[in-house]
């Protein structure tokens, strides 16, 4: 039993942060998106596009920051497809997301062959963002929390900042109010003269930007190459994190931390050899934890009223 408690240490926290960062980023985007009334299951594909773009631009320019910027922009552009399909064309949100996921996988595979000449993996980028790790002075001296939260890499810091930013955005700004309102009662928004379409476009693009960033984290910060299909279902887990986090930025963050923790803990359990079970049971554990979290925590909160519903304005011809 004593062995069991030694598993909980600073390393576990580090591991949790690393594994949860891409989920956090995508989940925060999902929060904004769903708050505005659009379900976005295309995040898996958006992350993949972001991951590929990041590696491609970091590889040809030699500068990971350009890769990061390109990934964010590419995520935003690809998300426009989802916005156009769901908002303007009134396509079912889930259908559009599923199609975009399939398209993103095919597209990145083909581009990988065109850009690097062979399938599977890309060439490694010359400089990865991991080399820009820095410790915040003073704060990183705090025991336990310091090294975990204040001695990190750029995108991890960005994810912390984005959580604060989007929380303030949702509850303290006028646009944030509009975002929440267009997910709860779009018709009322339209009657006070705010374009629901515009707000929803904005929200989908935000989720594209953060998903692109999450992809960049996977490819040029936590690794240095792109592998075909490297997101491995994280987009869906992010959606789960958003739901179990009760459609709020901070909740999404906490839920993502939980999923990251489940996976980190799984490796620890395997290494510690406390239980003599088939390894697959450990590998399954994060997925089971996700189901339990979604089922157990979702009851306390309520989804935005108009989420996933089509909104159509019958404008009078003038």
């Amino acid at each position: 039993m004593n062995d069991f408690f030694t598993l909980f240490n600073v390393e576990l926290l580090h591991s949790t942060i690393r594994l949860s960062t891409p989920i956090t980023l995508a989940a925060v985007g999902a929060t904004i998106c769903e708050r505005a009334g659009i379900v976005n299951i295309a995040m898996e594909g958006l992350m993949l596009i972001g991951a590929f773009t990041a590696v491609f631009f970091a590889y040809i320019t030699g500068n990971p920051w350009i890769g990061l910027l390109a990934a964010v922009i590419a995520g935003g552009i690809f998300s426009l497809l989802h916005a156009y399909a769901t908002i303007t064309l009134h396509l079912d949100h889930v259908v559009s997301g599923a199609v975009l996921n399939i398209l993103a996988l095919g597209l990145t595979n083909y581009l990988l062959i065109l850009a690097f000449g062979h399938p599977g993996t890309s060439e490694p980028v010359p400089v990865s963002l991991a080399e820009y790790q820095f410790a915040v002075p003073f704060l990183s001296q705090i025991p336990v929390i310091g090294p975990v939260f204040f001695n990190q890499r750029p995108i991890v810091y960005m994810s912390f900042l984005l959580i604060i930013f989007f929380t303030l955005f949702l509850y303290r700004t006028k646009t944030g109010l509009h975002v929440r309102a267009s997910g709860e009662h779009p018709l009322a928004m339209e009657t006070i003269g705010v374009s629901v379409y515009r707000i929803r476009y904005l929200a989908v693009i935000i989720s594209g930007l953060t998903s692109g960033l999450a992809g960049a984290f996977l490819s040029i910060e936590n690794s240095n190459v792109f592998t075909s299909g490297m997101t491995g279902g994280r987009g869906f887990i992010a959606l789960a994190a958003n739901i179990s986090g009760g459609w709020s930025a901070v909740g999404s963050f906490l839920a993502s931390l939980f999923f990251g923790f489940a996976e980190a803990f799984q490796y620890k359990m395997q290494a510690a050899r406390l239980l003599d079970l088939p390894s697959e049971l450990f590998v399954m554990f994060p997925y089971i934890a996700t189901v339990i979290a979604v089922a157990g925590l979702v009851r306390k909160s309520r989804p935005p009223k108009a989420v996933g519903l089509d909104f159509r304005i019958e404008k009078q011809a003038d």
């Binding site: 299951i41 889930v94 279902g233 869906f236 959606l239 789960a240 739901i243 088939p278 697959e280 049971l281 590998v283 399954m284 997925y287 089971i288 996700t290 189901v291 979604v294 089922a295 157990g296 979702v298 009851r299 989804p303």
Partner: peptide
């Protein structure tokens, strides 16, 4: 889960798919 707690089936069936895949190995 969908009926009792409102958990979205996109997430639950997806996670169950992963679980089934690893279970098939065992």
């Amino acid at each position: 889960l969908k009926v009792k707690t409102g958990a979205h089936e996109v997430i639950t069936t997806m996670m169950f798919a992963h679980i089934a895949r690893y279970f098939s190995s065992i």
